[in-house]
């Protein structure tokens, strides 16, 4: 069942691009004049202005194509996204290799404008198109006893120039607890700005978990596995002290190398003010209950 979560914004807020530019200038102008704060909060959702398509598609972390922010935009075109299939296995009733079309069958594609907060302390607002992961999991049938969902990104040395060097233990892998995966905010995105997902943003199909640091939102998924054990997560494995399995956005818990209390909003130019980071990236009301009783300074 789609539509479990209602967007604060409608697609009318997204187009046309010229309008955002104007609005953004207006907001920037107001901030510069000290007239009004530009701190986004759920209550002030109308101030949540999506970044331009240009920003979103030219400032990416997709290390399979290089560690530079512009590397994915430059080199991800080499990725073949048609045909595409996803292996769905583990503790599911209907395991198998699902083509992209089979995955999409029966899914309701919605537009959702989410905050996106990178662990590197920058943020964007992205208008995604996609469906709820819960719908897909219900379609394949999650067996009782499954506690986690593991995801894996495509690994194609011929198409991904960045995997030639072991920046991470390829293929890139991530995981969620089952209740996180089933949460209505968790979506599988297949596009942004109403266009098919650009390769550099994780074409053709990726995860979006808006209350977690961006690296949890794994791109170009080829495998989904239901399991009863906490799955391997690439960054967590590379440096567990810096990248926890949960990696919920939390302004009170610093990354060992930098503060997470504030963030730099992409697209603001050289003189943009940092903005306070919100607990669970502003989705506290929706997701805090998932972590009740957990010490979030320990379970990072």
């Amino acid at each position: 069942m789609a539509g479990r979560w209602k967007n604060d914004l409608t697609y009318n807020d997204v187009t046309p691009e010229a309008v955002f530019l104007n609005r953004r200038q207006l907001i920037a102008g107001a901030a510069a004049a000290g007239v009004a704060g530009t701190i986004a909060s759920p209550a002030m959702a109308e101030e949540l202005v999506p970044n331009s398509f240009e920003d979103i598609t030219n400032y990416c972390n997709f290390y399979e194509f290089g560690t530079g922010k512009d590397d994915p935009a430059r080199y991800a075109s080499a990725l073949t996204t048609q045909p595409w299939s996803i292996e769905i296995d583990g503790m599911v009733d209907n395991p198998g290799t699902y083509s992209f079309e089979q995955v999409m069958d029966g899914m309701t594609v919605e537009e959702r404008i989410y905050r996106f907060r990178c662990v590197e302390a920058w943020s964007m607002v992205v208008p995604w198109n996609g469906f709820e992961l819960a719908d897909l999991l219900e379609k394949v049938g999650v067996q009782s006893g499954a506690k986690y969902v593991a995801f894996e990104t495509a690994y194609r040395p011929d198409e991904m120039r960045g995997v030639a060097f072991p920046v991470l233990d390829w293929p890139y892998r991530e995981g969620l607890r089952l209740d996180e995966a089933m949460h209505p905010l968790t979506m599988v995105a297949t596009g942004l700005y109403g266009k098919p997902m650009p390769n550099q943003n994780g074409a053709p199909i990726r995860l979006v978990v808006p209350w977690k640091y961006g690296f949890k939102s794994i791109k170009s998924i080829v495998r989904i596995t239901l399991t009863d054990e906490e799955p391997f997560a690439s960054w967590n494995q590379a440096n567990p002290r810096e990248y926890g399995f949960y990696s919920n956005v939390n302004p009170n818990v610093d990354h060992p190398r930098w503060s997470q209390a504030t963030e730099r909003v992409i697209g603001g130019g050289l003189f943009a003010k940092r903005q306070p980071t919100l607990m669970f990236n502003g989705y506290e009301d929706e997701v805090a209950s998932l972590y009740e009783g957990m010490d979030l300074t320990t379970f990072i």
Binding site: N58, R264, L270, A272
Partner: peptide, 15 residues
Amino acid sequence: LGLTGGLGPEPVKVL
């Protein structure tokens, strides 16, 4: 370049 958009969407880090 940072002032005029030539350093991409996030000029501060690049600079």
